[in-house]
Design a protein around this nucleic acid. Structure first.
Length: 563
DNA sequence: TAAACTGTTGTGAGC
DNA sequence: AGCTCACAACAGTTT
């Protein structure tokens, strides 16, 4: 590409345009730097062609469009991102690449930190426009700050679209006028005052091509390790980022990543008129051997499916159900209600200081959690000796997905219910393994379940003995994920330590040898003790005392380094 | 104003 | 087996 030459006049114009942020398109009036205008669309989440206004903006304003993804090893490494989650991401990117190729475009995948990769990329292709979909995670906020600065310094127009949520967040925040709702109900009021979510856009019928000349410029001017093996610029393999490909090949693909997969899943479920109309989350079964919910969460998280598209697809189904005389279950437990929770948690994540942690988070109750590495490990690895809990954790690690209520059960067990470990440690484990791990939603739910925020009835504790039994009295779920307990009679499958030695021998699984003793002796007793500790923490908060400094509490060292 | 009510998704006893 | 009900007792909102 031609070298970027910026005249003094253009610089003045640029600074003025930055001050007039609401009118970034003023750049369109600038004299073109070359005969062909080059735009870069940066894919991060939002891994789709449909309902992607940032992509459309780049496509419609440029002669040459460069769709780019940057794989950052700070996120893509086995310690922070489990193999199933990473595999989903790679599948989604491959699907995106193929969909782009069908439109005579392509996906350029670079390796490295966006703060180090984007600027040389923009320079090497002579880009004049850079677009992306906004994301609120601290990682993206920091990337966007740095990359945005670099772009404006280089005279590249930046166009950001807020389409990961149903309503554009800045608009919702402005509408709240400084009063961010503290409850779900309050949020729903605010949400509805903004009218119906915008309709989803169709995918572009065609895209500006990538020229070979541009690809060559990237290969020549960017570092070799940024371009991937043999400077392929292609979607990486698992092995390139240190994952064991042979081991991965043995893990079944239950939920393949990608836009097409996600949309097909959405269409399939939305055709179930009666099921959609009567859907009530608390009535779905955490122990079902096939998921009892839509499992659209990973597709929404990576943006394979647009949340606006899903919202309106549900509305169409609701309308059809009404015309058939069916009753629609309302929020909060309906599927629309689920999306409203997602929307609410995204708003909280953007407006609560230190949202992802307990300390310095004004909305989070301060609780002097214990710090027991052995408890945490046993929980993560499914060695608590409570079959219902361990089976859930086995499903999490082997499938990368758990029913919402199963997440409740293990989260309550780790925190206020039994082990009294910090909810942030549990959140980190979920963020590693879950294919749908979504920072804003995950952190909210961990605060919810640990009765630290949103939910405060800490005396309501899930029983690790009876909760699973409720929907699975014969323990089929436990048997599926803990095969060593398969031969136990129904009577003891949720509490095998109570089985007489003879029964244990007959089942071929001795407790304490082939399956662990329960990590806490008596759940009822332990949960009572924990309730008293919760009560104390709540009392301290009420009287304005700082229980953390009173108890000389120190935050446990972060086990994983996620920058 | 203080009291009542509500809050996506509990447990366990007793019928 | 499946249902109702007492229990425990929080914060935020409404009346």
């Amino acid at each position: 590409g031609p070298p970027i030459t910026t005249t003094r006049l253009q610089l003045v114009f640029l600074v003025a345009s930055c001050l007039l942020a609401p009118f970034p398109r003023a750049f369109g009036a600038m004299p073109a730097k070359s005969s062909r205008r080059v735009a870069v669309h940066w894919f991060r989440k939002g891994q789709r062609l449909h309902d992607n206004p940032a992509l459309l903006a780049a496509a419609s304003q440029a002669d040459v469009l460069l769709p780019v993804y940057i794989m950052d090893p700070r996120l893509a490494n086995e310690a922070d991102m489990g193999v199933i989650r990473f595999r989903f991401l790679l599948q989604s990117l491959a699907a995106l690449r193929d969909a782009l190729r069908e439109k005579k475009s392509d996906l350029i995948v670079l390796r490295g930190r966006p703060e180090e990769v984007m600027e040389p990329l923009l320079r090497s292709v002579g880009a004049e426009l850079l677009t992306w979909e906004h994301a609120g995670e601290p990682y993206y906020v920091e990337c966007d700050r740095v990359v945005g600065k670099q772009a404006s310094k280089a005279g590249v127009e930046v166009d950001i679209h807020h389409t990961h949520t149903l309503h554009e967040q800045p608009m919702l925040i402005a509408k709240a006028k400084g009063n961010i709702p503290g409850t779900y109900k309050g949020f729903c009021k605010l949400f509805h005052s903004a009218g119906a979510p915008a309709e989803a856009l169709e995918e572009p019928s065609k895209l500006p091509a990538i020229t070979e000349e541009l690809k060559s410029a990237i290969r020549e001017e960017l570092d070799e390790n940024v371009c991937g093996p043999e400077r392929s610029l292609d979607v990486p393999s698992l092995g390139e980022f240190g994952y064991d490909e042979e081991k991965a090949a043995e893990i079944p693909v239950l939920f393949p990543g990608g836009e097409e997969e996600g949309l097909a899943r959405m269409v399939k479920h939305c055709a179930r008129t009666e099921w959609i109309a009567s859907f009530a989350k608390p009535d779905t079964k955490p122990t079902a051997l096939e998921p009892d919910t839509t499992v659209l969460s990973p597709y929404l998280m990576f943006g394979c499916v647009s949340v606006r598209r899903f919202w309106h697809a549900l509305q169409t189904t609701y309308d059809r159900a009404v015309s058939q005389g069916l009753k629609i279950n309302p929020p909060p437990t309906s599927l629309h209600g689920q999306l409203l929770f997602r929307e609410y948690f995204y708003l909280c994540s953007a407006t609560t200081p230190n949202y992802a942690q307990m300390v310095d988070n004004p909305a989070c109750v301060k609780i002097p959690w214990d710090d027991n590495e052995e408890f945490l490990k046993a929980w993560e690895e499914g060695r608590t000796g409570y079959p219902w809990i361990d089976a859930c954790m086995a499903q999490l690690r082997t499938e990368g997905w758990l029913h919402h209520l199963a997440r409740h059960a293990v989260a309550c067990f780790l925190t206020r219910g039994d082990l009294f470990q910090h909810w942030e440690r549990g959140a980190e484990v979920f963020e590693k393994y879950l294919i749908d791990a979504d920072w804003a939603i995950n952190r909210a739910n961990w605060q919810w379940l640990s009765a630290s925020n949103f939910f405060h009835q800490y005396f309501r504790v899930y029983s690790p003995l009876t909760f699973g039994k409720k929907t699975d009295s014969h323990g089929a779920f436990v048997r599926k994920y803990l095969p060593q307990l398969r031969e136990y009679p129904d009577k003891y499958i949720f509490e095998p330590w109570n089985a007489p030695t003879k029964v244990q021998e007959k089942a071929g699984c001795i407790i304490g040898r082939d399956y662990p003793e329960p990590i806490v002796d008596d759940h009822r007793e332990v949960s009572k003790t924990n309730m008293a500790r919760m009560k104390e923490a709540y009392a301290a908060r009420k009287s304005g005392r700082d229980i953390l400094s009173e108890t000389n509490w120190q935050p446990p060292a972060k086990r994983r380094r996620v920058e």
